[in-house]
């Protein structure tokens, strides 16, 4: 079985830990406990009879990604860059952030995730898309699990294909 390091990053409070908990434990909490340091856990995802062990790193959010120690990103096969759809300030730096990440690990996959979709009214989504500096690959809700499984199975199959 192949093992891959995947890291959740983005500004603080966007829902990285919530996505982590939803993916690993299928749980959600409304409480906001900001992450200090790093947390790592694992889940095995099966895609067409092939297993990928995803080692998911949840780190403390930073407004700008150049504040995150590079060593966290090294060796990652994929980066999940999370923004909070409800707080445009969290995707303000998306472009420079992504450039920065691509520089550190050029060969890594990057997924841009718009989280907290449950808080967005359906007719506001198009407006939101038009003001985003980079397009989101997927919209999720860590709260009710929308697209969380999809996000990780898409990622897993791309990781398998890249392997």
């Amino acid at each position: 079985m192949i093992s891959k390091k995947v890291i959740l990053t983005g500004s603080f409070g966007v829902g990285k830990t919530s996505l982590f908990n939803q993916f690993i434990f299928k749980t959600f909490s409304d409480k906001y406990l900001t992450t200090i340091g790093v947390k790592v856990n694992k889940r095995v995802v099966t895609i067409d009879d092939q297993e990928v062990s995803i080692l998911l790193w949840d780190i403390a959010g930073e407004i700008s990604q150049d504040k995150v120690p590079n060593s966290y990103f090294l060796g990652a096969s994929a980066i999940i860059y999370v923004v909070d759809l409800n707080r445009p300030i969290t995707f303000q730096n998306a472009k420079t952030d992504l450039d920065h990440l691509k520089k550190i690990i050029p060969d890594s996959l990057i997924k841009v995730v718009g989280n907290k979709i449950d808080l967005i009214e359906e007719d506001k989504i198009e407006d939101l898309k038009s003001i985003m500096p980079v397009p989101c690959d997927i919209f999720t809700s860590a709260k009710n699990g929308i697209n969380v499984e999809d996000l990780f199975s898409q990622l897993a199959s791309e990781l398998l294909a890249n392997n």
């Binding site: 947390k39 790592v40 790193w57 120690p69 060593s71 966290y72």
Partner: peptide
């Protein structure tokens, strides 16, 4: 789970060193 131990150790290492 040893994979998790290894991941956590590495994360702690990175965290402390940083």
């Amino acid at each position: 789970d040893r994979d998790v131990i290894a991941g956590m150790l590495t994360a702690i290492k990175s965290f402390v060193e940083d």
